[in-house]
Design a protein around this nucleic acid. Structure first.
Lengths: 136, 136
DNA sequence: CCCTGATTGTTATATTATTACTTAGGTACT
DNA sequence: AGTACCTAAGTAATAATATAACAATCAGGG
C-alpha cells in the first residue's frame, strides 16, 4: 500500500480501517454507526476524516451512491483516473482504470482549455455474476 | 426539440420549462421554489416529474451536484453518452459527447460481461473563461 | 355509470451534509 | 515554563436532499 500521504490521524485511521475491511461501499452514516464503539458520536467526525482520505487518494467517493470505498487501485493517487462499475443487483463495486477513455477526456479538456481537477466515471448496471444467477 | 417521448404531463412540462429556461443546473428544491407560483407545494411534485424527464432523456441528473439540467445534446436520448464539464468557479456546465471514451468504457463492459444501464461522466475544474479572467 | 390506471396532492419522515462554536494537543519560539 | 499558533477533535444545532405512505382527482373504456 505504498501511497504517498501523511500519517493518518486517529479518526482517519479508524474510518480508513472500516472502509478497507468492508466488502463494498459504505455511507457516511453507516461508518458512523460502525464506529460508535470507537467513540464516534457525530457525523462530522466521519465527514472530516473522509475529506482528508479522499484528498490523499486513499478513498473514493461514489457520487451516484453518496457512499465511499477504499481505493483498490495501485497508483490511483498518482493519476486520478479511477472508474467504477456498480452492480445494481448485488451492490458490488469494481474499480478499474479506463486509460483510453481518460485519454479521450483529457484531449477534450485540452481542446477546451478546461483545467481539470477531478473526474467522476461511474457505470451502473448488472455484473456478470448477477446476470448469470438471474437467468435461471 | 424533436425528442422521442410521450407528451408531458402538466407538472413535467412545468419542470422541464424551468430547466430549459435556466442558464445552468438547478436543484430539486430550487425548482420547487421556482414553481410555487405555479402551485407546487411539495418536493415530491418535483422529484416525480424529474424522474420521468430523466427517463425520457430530456433531463440529466448531475450526480456530483445533486442537480439537474435540460439536455442540450441532440440525440442524447438515443445513445445515453453524455458527459459534463462543470466549472467550479462560475458553475456553468457544458455537455459533450465523448464518443471515444464511451467506446473504451463499452469495450470494458463487454469484456467483463457487465450489463450497462447508465453512465455518469462528470469533469470538475475551471473553464477557459474563468481561467482567463483569474490570471489578471 | 363504474371500473381502472395514471397523475397529482399532502403529510410526515428518512437520509445526507454543513455551520458554528468549543476543546484539546502538539510544536516552535522566548 | 509560558504563550502564540496550528491542526485535530468534540458537540450541538440545523440545512439540504430524498422518499414513504396514503388520499384525492381525473381521464378513458366497457
Amino acid at each position: 500500500m505504498a501511497h504517498a500521504h501523511p500519517d493518518l490521524t486517529k479518526n482517519q485511521a479508524l474510518v480508513f480501517g472500516k472502509l478497507s475491511d468492508a466488502s463494498g461501499p459504505l455511507t457516511a452514516y453507516a461508518l458512523l454507526d460502525n464506529l460508535r464503539e470507537n467513540g464516534f458520536r457525530a457525523p462530522l467526525q466521519v465527514y472530516r476524516a473522509l475529506d482528508k482520505l479522499v484528498d490523499y487518494g486513499l478513498v473514493h467517493r461514489l457520487e451516484s451512491l453518496n457512499a465511499f470505498v477504499a481505493c483498490r487501485h495501485k497508483g490511483c493517487a498518482d493519476h486520478k483516473t479511477a472508474a467504477f462499475a456498480i452492480c445494481e443487483t448485488c451492490g458490488n463495486v469494481q474499480e478499474f482504470s479506463p486509460d483510453r477513455a481518460m485519454e479521450d477526456l483529457l484531449r477534450w479538456t485540452r481542446e477546451q482549455e478546461f483545467k481539470l481537477s477531478r473526474t467522476t466515471i461511474e457505470l451502473r448496471g448488472i455484473c456478470r455474476a448477477c446476470s448469470a444467477s438471474q437467468q435461471a
